[in-house]
Design a protein around this nucleic acid. Structure first.
Lengths: 157, 157
DNA sequence: GTGCTTCCTCAAGTGGACTTGAGGTCAAGG
DNA sequence: CCTTGACCTCAAGTCCACTTGAGGAAGCAC
């Protein structure tokens, strides 16, 4: 309700439009996921297009996709100029398989809860649910989202 | 390859069969997500049925569903006796909506990456992606998975 | 009976994704 | 001129889902 939607946004405006906290934008920027330039007063200014990047990040987060997996997608999207549809498509390819896997897992989980689980096939080696998402294993301490490392993860020495 | 599959399992056996670390089982137990009794030597013994609970937990984790959301489902599943199919189904209802939302989000994300994003509809108020998963907001500091709190989360005072 | 493996507890560490807080700058309004 | 509000930085705190480590007891195998 101010300046009739200017092309560059302050962090407050970005935060409001993207539905995230200012600190989150700071964080994403520190992580190199979004970019800004500065006014003479050292205030951030964002190109409106950065909004889309934030949107992508947020949706991915909502779906439990870690930032480390979002980064490569974002990296495929050229900076500083308007992005062609083909380029978005190319970026999306990075996720295509992953998304398919997840969709499949969810569908199966949905369809078969009350049947698949009930019937006992939900053991590690039998159930398709377990053997679906095994790309992107992340190792080392800390939680393993995207587990998939169901094999060989009994109890390391 | 030991005792021809006995009905109760040690934590090591559970861990191996469930594809998780022993420490994870300790943790789940401390969180009240699974249960065990003890041998005279204070060693855990698990009913074979706990395997299914672990499987459910793991799949949910893989899909980015936080333990706090898994708990209510597990709570619907009676302990100590074999679970009827209807009971599994009832438990699954807790998730039904959630899973549907996620499936929808994923499908849309998948289908429309390169189109929806490219066409600019991915702004907070327009895009269906943002308005899909708004149940289960969790508040307070720390990460917000399941964000959905996209509304009203601009920058709290 | 000596040794290896498995188990136990409890406290502390870790990684990811942020948030909070302290202390400071700058432009505009009353 | 002073206050208010939006912004800045940087360090530290927080939550979740675990893992690691220290220190110790029990089972089983030879």
């Amino acid at each position: 309700m101010k300046k009739a939607v200017p092309n560059d946004l302050s962090v407050g405006e970005m935060a409001a439009r993207a539905g995230v906290a200012v600190s989150t934008l700071h964080y994403y920027e520190a992580e190199g996921l979004i970019e800004s330039w500065r006014t003479p007063a050292n205030h951030r200014r964002y190109d409106r297009r950065e909004l889309r990047r934030v949107a992508i990040i947020r949706i991915a987060q909502t779906l439990g996709i870690p930032l480390a997996q979002v980064r490569p997608v974002l990296d495929k999207i050229p900076r500083g100029r308007t992005v062609k549809a083909a380029e978005w498509a190319a970026a999306s390819e990075v996720w295509a398989e992953e998304l398919d896997d997840r969709i499949e897992m969810l569908l199966r989980l949905r369809q078969t809860l009350g049947h698949c689980i009930g019937c006992g096939c939900l053991s590690v080696d039998n159930c398709p649910l377990y053997n679906a998402g095994d790309a992107m294993g992340d190792n080392g301490p800390g939680p393993r989202r995207w587990t998939g490392a169901a094999e060989e993860r009994a109890d390391p020495p």
